[in-house]
Nucleic acid binder design. Sequence first.
RNA 1: GGGGCAGUAGCUCAGCUGGUUAGAGCAGGGGACUCAUAAUCCCUGGGUCGCGGGUUCAAGUCCUGCCUGCCCUACCA
Length: 599
Amino acid sequence: MGRMTHVLTALAWPYANGPRHIGHVAGFGVPADVFARYMRMRGHDVLMVSGTDEHGTPILVQADAEGLTAAEAAAKYNRIIVEDLDALGLSYDLFTRTTTGNHYKTVQELFTTLHANGYILQQRTLGAISPSTGRTLPDRYIEGTCPHCGFDSARGDQCDNCGRQLDPVDLIDPKSRINGETPKFVEEDHFFLDLPAFADALNAWLDTRTGWRTNVLRFTKNLLDEMHPRPISRDLDWGVPIPLEGWVDRPDKRLYVWFDAVIGYLSATIEWARRSGDPEAWKRWWQDPEAVSYYFMGKDNIVFHSEIWPAMLLGANGEGAKGGEPGSLGKLNLPTEVVSSEFLTMEGKQFSSSRRVVIYVRDFLERYSPDALRYYICAAGPENQDSDFTWAEFLRRNNDELVAGWGNLVNRSIAMAAKNFGAVPEPGELEDVDRELLATTKQAFDTVGDLIGANKVRAGIGEAMKAVAAANKYLADTAPWKMKEDPKRQGTVLYTVLQAVSDLKTVMSPFLPHSSQRVHELLGGEGVFAPMPFIEEVEELDEGGATDGPYPILTGDYSDVPKWESVPLVPGTVLEKPVPVFTKLEPSIVDEEIERLNA
RNA sequence: GGGGCAGUAGCUCAGCUGGUUAGAGCAGGGGACUCAUAAUCCCUGGGUCGCGGGUUCAAGUCCUGCCUGCCCUACCA
């Protein structure tokens, strides 16, 4: 990707049945934002899209529990999630929702194309429904006695006691976990995506994929060995209507939530284009063969992004075993890369809202800065294997690395220059040590940049921190505070270290945009250095969705991002005594937070 | 049951296609410095690379069995 390229950065859609915890943003939010910010600085035309996933049974369950309608509950949590992602500084071009009229239209269009191409099958199946509501009762909401081991609270899909796979029909005395009633098992017509028709095309496509994390590729190839048609409709009154005669007006039949959710990547791009004033602009990311697309998600979501969504796109393009023609949306690009993270655990335990093993993004940001969280996630997130969040480790990373390393470098160098010169000093002749430090920070642009481009965020920020350490060592070696009798040399040394700090704030900005903006200002810079998203209340573009009126989107203007390169400081630029950029935390927070968790 | 990933110093992790005495950061121990949010810099101890077999001149690195953890296993999103 040497030249300017269109880069779609697609983030998994947070499910809107509650606030999101830090594991969610650790898995895909922050890593994707680092990637998008870097790609923009390299001059690529990045579009970063996502939104809240608002259909499906869990939303209905949550709404009932709160005495709200599904639309109200979805709107409530959509807003909370939007505010949290904004506070973290995730630079979405558009963060929207799956309940918009635009989304409904796009989903129905894709369904229609897949149906016309013969990839949607209608089959009769036995399913559980709730007698009181008529809604599909997902297996995991059914419990009963395990027919194998007699365990009395086996779930419909699996017995937690003996571990066996179950079919809810086989449970003895099945009950709904939602309201205790006995589910009814009925034969129903449903639609299925004909996944086996894409096996060969998917295999051929996967063989062309390079650069993926090996576990994702292996996992996906393994899935292809055994593919079955996958249901895409449900007995529900909450979701996208099925756009076929005899179905579209039925209040009890909707498209299955996963089917509509993955289409959000496409519908969000279209919504962004329509709101930008150029309704055709979405095609640059979806139809241009040179465009690339990176999808970020947790490992539980791999199958949807590496198998099912590509299958849907192949079907819509008419490229499965049954052939066909592209629909009105034209021929669409398949993912370039599926970037999956592992899971973050919490003090050794799985995150779980119900068991209260959870730290919500909102609660975290009320007490700590967004860059403190971003630093932890970048340096210690679950990139290649599960990683454990502990408050002790957070404290250490923040105090010993972020504050003592990078923050201290910024503070000591600017303070010394402000005190002795009141400005960026005019350098004299550079010596070898000076040139070496500047070569190190210049080199960091390449090494860190390559690592971010390969989605190795941990290694990337590690390399950046090595350059920070080199600058701290440079100060120890040159000791400019001892140069009172040689202001010329002192000015040269301080100029050199300030230039290094300036370079490093650029290198750090994809990871730590808030603080890089501050460093930019401390160095006398003006204007926006690391642009931030903002929330905008917008009107619906189309009828037919399920939002009730205007809704908040997360968007931003990232057109003026600085380049990924060293910019020479201007001697004479006035410097003030700096206010520390990062906050050192009291060790007592560890016990306080753990207590809060156990409360 | 099937599949994927992981198990390396007290902690968090690097170790690509197998090749000299297995690395880093932090914590621990010692020292230097004082510009800086007591931050920084230097030196330093510490590992039978989950367990058992096997292939090879040579394995943390390949094969196999087992143990442990996490995820997926299709109507969970």
